[in-house]
């Protein structure tokens, strides 16, 4: 299984890989916001955490449709599905993890830079980074379900986003509310953050199982 992780990471970082595309998309999405709402620094600082979270959510949905589609196109998916149930679930888990390492983790690391552009303070930026670190894996894991369902469709890309966005809304809600709670005084930071962590763990358990079931059903 380490071999699978290494292979997926190697493909993501080789030429033609999508590792840095997510970060670029993140950068571009967040950078257009000030053009739309004007360069008022106080306003930007106030909405910064929400913008960063929405940008990160969209960016991590970006490469999800390729998660299994690429393996299906070259025939590897048959070999991945040809395993006993537990190994298949674990395979999906590893593939989602590789996807997060290649596209989610760079988003977390790029967040401070964008926090600067959004005129966010150190606490606020730190809170967003922490919530993204916990929240983006949840998106990758639940996204695997959408990717598995859409694997047989020729134009699955948009569909994956449409299927997954509603499921990712709780992640967004608690991620943003925890980020705001860190800077607005009476609200406590930990309760929403704990719920966010719980969602992440729940998705990490549920996502691979559901995706494995969908892959079993989808093979033709």
């Amino acid at each position: 299984m380490m071999a699978l992780l290494r292979r997926d990471l190697a493909i993501a970082t080789r030429s033609g890989g999508a590792a840095m595309l997510g970060v670029l998309f993140f950068l571009a999405v967040v950078a257009v916001i000030p053009f739309g709402i004007g360069p008022d620094l106080n306003l930007l600082a106030r909405i910064g955490p929400a913008i960063l979270w929405i940008g990160a959510l969209l960016a991590s949905l970006l490469g999800l449709d390729r998660l299994f589609q690429a393996d299906r196109e070259d025939g590897s998916l048959d070999m991945l599905v040809m395993q006993d149930w537990f190994s298949l679930v674990f395979t999906v888990f590893i593939k989602s993890l590789a996807h997060w390492l290649a596209t989610g983790l760079p988003l977390v690391l790029a967040a401070p830079l964008l926090g600067l552009l959004m005129n966010m303070g150190a606490t606020s930026t730190g809170a967003v980074m922490l919530t993204l670190l916990v929240g983006t894996p949840a998106i990758s894991f639940i996204g695997a379900v959408g990717a598995a369902v859409a694997v047989v469709l020729p134009r699955g890309g948009l569909l994956v986003s449409i299927l997954i966005l509603p499921l990712a809304i709780p992640v967004l809600i608690f991620g943003v509310s925890a980020s705001y709670a860190a800077v607005t005084d009476p609200d406590p930071f930990w309760p929403p953050f704990m719920i966010l962590s719980a969602i992440a763990l729940f998705f990490a358990a549920l996502g691979p199982v559901a995706a494995a079931a969908a892959l079993r059903g989808a093979s033709d």
């Binding site: 033609g16 840095m20 670029l24 950078a31 053009f35 360069p39 620094l41 600067l116 552009l117």
Partner: peptide
């Protein structure tokens, strides 16, 4: 402030994004 969205800074930032975009195009 570390950053303001004024015309000069923004246009240089756009230049930076264009560099990165072109690099991504070559890599793709």
């Amino acid at each position: 402030t570390w950053w303001v969205w004024d015309a000069r800074l923004t246009s240089v930032f756009v230049l930076f994004l264009m560099y990165l975009g072109l690099m991504a195009l070559h890599k793709a």
